[in-house]
Computed example of a mutant assay.
Amino acid sequence: MSLRVSEHARTRWLERTADARLDPHGAWLEATPVRRHGLDGDEVRYHDPSSTVLIRKDDTLVTVISLDDATYSVHASVQHLRGEQR
Rank of each mutant, 00 (worst) to 15 (best):
A76P: 02
T32A: 11
A31M: 03
H75L: 12
T52M: 06
G38S: 09
S2K: 13
D68I: 07
V64E: 03
H80N: 08
L29K: 10
A27R: 05
G26P: 02
P33Q: 04
R45N: 05
H47V: 01
G83P: 00
L61C: 10
T63N: 09
P49L: 12
M1G: 15
S66T: 14
A20M: 04
T11N: 07
V5T: 09
R45D: 01
R82P: 02
Q85C: 02
L22H: 10
L39K: 08
V44I: 06
V34H: 00
H47D: 07
R86I: 15
Y46W: 15
G41T: 02
A31N: 06
R35I: 05
R12A: 09
R86S: 15
L22A: 09
V74I: 14
H75Q: 12
Q85H: 13
T11C: 01
A20C: 04
A70L: 10
D69F: 11
V5Y: 01
R56F: 03
E7S: 13
A18D: 13
T11G: 02
A70N: 09
L39D: 00
R21V: 14
E7Q: 15
R86Y: 15
P49M: 12
D40T: 01
D23S: 11
E30I: 04
L22K: 07
T60H: 06
K57E: 14
L39G: 05
I65Y: 06
D59W: 11
V74R: 03
L3A: 10
Q79I: 13
H80Y: 14
S73W: 08
P24K: 03
S6L: 08
G38E: 01
D48N: 02
T63L: 08
L54F: 03
V78I: 14
S50V: 09
L29G: 03
T32L: 12
A9E: 04
Q85S: 14
D59S: 15
D59Y: 13
V34K: 00
T17D: 04
W28E: 01
L81M: 11
R4V: 02
D68T: 12
R21C: 07
V53G: 06
T17F: 03
A20H: 12
L29S: 09
G41M: 06
H37W: 03
E43T: 06
V44R: 02
V44S: 04
H25K: 09
E7P: 00
E7C: 04
L61D: 02
R56M: 11
S51L: 14
P49V: 11
D42C: 00
R56T: 05
A18L: 13
G83H: 11
D68E: 15
L39N: 03
G38D: 02
R35H: 09
V78Q: 00
A70Y: 01
D19R: 03
V62T: 12
D19L: 03
A70S: 15
M1A: 14
R56L: 09
S50C: 08
K57I: 13
D69H: 15
L61Q: 06
D42Q: 07
D42A: 03
T60S: 09
R10H: 13
D69I: 04
G26S: 05
L14E: 13
S6N: 08
P24S: 09
D42K: 06
S66M: 07
D40H: 04
T71F: 05
R56N: 07
V64N: 01
